[in-house]
């Protein structure tokens, strides 16, 4: 994993360095890592033989390695956020708190997960791995497909001088605790997170990038939550897309990957379909962009001549009943 991070970090280091030179020399850079279990498989297997409390914290080792590789920055505070498949969202929320408390000027979020036996067996035992392909929100969806990813996102507390930075308006999460391995069936947990979000910032999305794992329970919960929440803000026809049909469910990195996809859509004004999904579940009412949906390949504008995509909502749901 260190090798993977190093490759990613190469592209960032100059950028971070340039930024810090523009700011005060004492700029504080927080380092936040988000993952589930994929990057600590070795420790998990050791823990089956030993007392896990006697083992070194694997995440701390990974963070220490990264800091040693990049000694130019103080990297404070530094921590790992592991909150199931909503890890990246919750990590963003933590960064939001650090900025609000004036504890950091910049933050680097590193998200990563790999697919190993522990992860595969865990999902297989729940019988939620698709034997065919991943078809989120479709009538014939039969489960998720696992994916690997690593990502880095650089955040700033203050608006930078560079033109048109992308603003992350707000992150909100809610822990419902309905079940260990599924969200509340009526989508109430996600509605609570969305309600909390709308109480803190104006929520008027032009697009939703949904978690959309392709499992029966996740997609149903999201559909019901969107029905409840988006209808309340009179935006029932908001298009909904997702990324997992293409690159799999990347677990602790999925929220960051979706955030990056959202940034790219805002930048290019080009949206993508849920290509594997031909027909939406007939019980669903929301506007999912399926393989049959018509979308334009050129940057599009709305009736008022404004950019079509100005605000994008990104959702994540995780084991333990966390919604963000």
């Amino acid at each position: 994993m260190t090798k993977l991070w190093k490759n990613l970090a190469l592209g960032f280091e100059n950028d971070i360095h340039e930024l810090l030179q523009q700011q005060t020399p004492k700029s504080r850079v927080a380092l936040v890592f988000s993952s589930t279990k994929g990057v600590i498989e070795d420790t998990i297997w050791k823990a089956t033989k030993n007392n896990i409390r006697e083992l070194e914290d694997p995440f701390q080792c990974v963070i220490d390695d990264f800091c040693e590789e990049h000694p130019n920055f103080s990297w404070e505070p530094r921590c790992n956020v592991s909150n199931a498949c909503a890890s990246a969202h919750v990590a963003c929320e933590y960064i939001q708190t650090l900025f609000a408390q004036d504890r950091a000027d910049f933050a680097v979020l590193i998200s990563a997960d790999l697919v190993g036996p522990f992860v595969t067996k865990g999902f297989a035992s729940l019988k939620i791995i698709s034997p065919t392909s991943n078809r989120p929100f479709s009538a014939d969806r039969d489960g998720l497909q696992l994916g690997e990813a690593a990502s880095m996102v650089l955040f700033a507390r203050k608006r930078p001088s560079r033109p048109a930075p992308i603003r992350l308006s707000r992150v909100a999460s809610h822990t419902e605790g309905t079940s260990i391995t599924r969200p509340s069936m009526n989508g109430d947990g996600l509605v609570s997170a969305l309600t909390q979000l709308s109480s803190q910032t104006q929520v008027s999305p032009d697009l939703v990038i949904a978690h959309g794992t392709g499992t029966h329970f996740n997609d149903l919960a999201e559909e019901l939550a969107f029905q409840n929440f988006l209808t309340n803000i009179s935006r029932e026809r908001i298009p909904i897309t997702n990324t997992k049909w293409c690159i799999g469910h990347t677990l602790g990195a999925s929220g960051s990957i979706d955030l990056i996809a959202a940034c790219e859509i805002l930048r290019t004004q080009r949206v993508f379909r849920i290509q594997n999904t031909q027909v939406v579940d007939p019980k669903f009412r929301m506007n999912y962009l399926t393989a049959r949906s018509e979308i334009t390949n050129s940057p599009s504008r709305n009736q008022n001549g404004q950019k079509q995509f100005r605000q994008i909502l990104v959702t994540s749901l995780g084991f333990g009943g966390v919604d963000a």
Binding site: L4, N7, L8, G11, F12, D15, L19, I95, Q96, F99, F106, G147, E148, A149, A150, S151, M152, V153, L154, F155, A156, R157, K158, R159, P160, R162, P165, I166, R167, L168, T243, C246, I247, G248, T250, A253, S256, I257, L259, I260, A261, C263, E264, T268, R270, F272, R273, Q275, A291, N297
Partner: peptide, 26 residues
């Protein structure tokens, strides 16, 4: 807060361009 830069490695390949290329091309 503001997003200044990002990068990723996925099954689509190394970098954001590869990710978006895969998503946009289906």
């Amino acid at each position: 807060m503001y997003i200044l830069n990002y990068d990723c490695i996925t099954a689509a390949g190394d970098g954001v361009f590869k990710l978006m290329e895969a998503l946009n091309s289906g």
